[in-house]
């Protein structure tokens, strides 16, 4: 079972095999949660979205058609759920007090006490990096995360974001440009090494 393709698993699940659902959950819980986390910027919302996605998988399992890869489909679902979450959040009343560009993202990178202190520098660059990512415009952020984090191909990203291939190319390019400008330290550090 563990060696089987996602597509085989979902087909199995569609014919009623609950084991297959477990496998899919195991495989996708982390990617989906992390994608939602990067999209939304806080843990609570990402948790909501993650559970929504899996419930969609249960209630609308037949909506998946084997014409696309399963990962594409489930990321599309995640993206849609995240976007409606963002919309709700925008509508919600707290947004009156909190400007969207205030960068007041919740602290969800749990500080790591268990590792030796020589990791502090690394943690510093990591938090810089996540900050830089959260500063990206949403679409760019999405595209670069799908590409770099989840190793999606341009075609898959195109499908997920429901846009043209050229747009994907430009989004990723721009995201890289901005990251490059915001993170000179990381780049120079790598150069030295």
């Amino acid at each position: 079972m563990e060696h089987r393709q996602d597509e085989e698993l979902i087909a199995d699940y569609q014919t009623g095999n609950e084991e297959a659902l477990k496998m899919l959950f195991e495989r996708y819980k982390k990617p989906i949660f992390n994608f939602a986390l990067r999209m939304l910027g806080n843990r609570a919302d990402a948790e909501d979205v993650t559970s929504e996605v899996f419930i969609t998988l249960v209630t609308k399992k037949d909506a998946y058609k084997p014409t696309a890869k399963f990962s594409t489909w489930i990321f599309t679902v995640t993206r849609n759920a995240s976007i409606s979450k963002l919309r709700k959040r925008k509508k919600s009343f707290t947004m009156w007090f909190q400007k969207e560009d205030s960068k007041d993202y919740e602290q969800w990178e749990v500080p790591d006490n268990r590792l030796p202190s020589d990791n502090i520098v690394k943690n510093e660059t990591k938090s810089q990096l996540s900050r830089a990512i959260s500063n990206l415009p949403p679409e760019q952020r999405e595209a670069i995360i799908l590409r770099e984090y989840h190793q999606m191909s341009y075609d898959q990203i195109k499908e997920i974001m429901n846009c043209s291939l050229d747009k994907v190319k430009i989004l990723i390019y721009r995201a890289r440009e901005q990251l490059r400008n915001e993170l000179p330290s990381i780049i120079s550090e790598e150069d030295n090494a």
């Binding site: 959950f25 819980k29 982390k30 990617p31 949660f33 992390n34 986390l37 843990r43 948790e47 993650t50 559970s51 899996f54 419930i55 969800w108 990178e109 660059t125 990591k126 990096l129 996540s130 990512i133 670069i144 770099e148 984090y149 890289r176 990251l179 490059r180 993170l183 990381i186 780049i187 790598e190 150069d191």
Partner: peptide, 22 residues
């Protein structure tokens, strides 16, 4: 280098609590 440092970003774990909830 941007790509490689992005890849190094840790994946957050789901809290076991959340898994149970789901």
């Amino acid at each position: 280098s941007i790509s490689s440092s992005l890849k190094e970003l840790p994946q957050e774990d789901l809290s076991p609590d959340l898994e149970q909830k789901i």
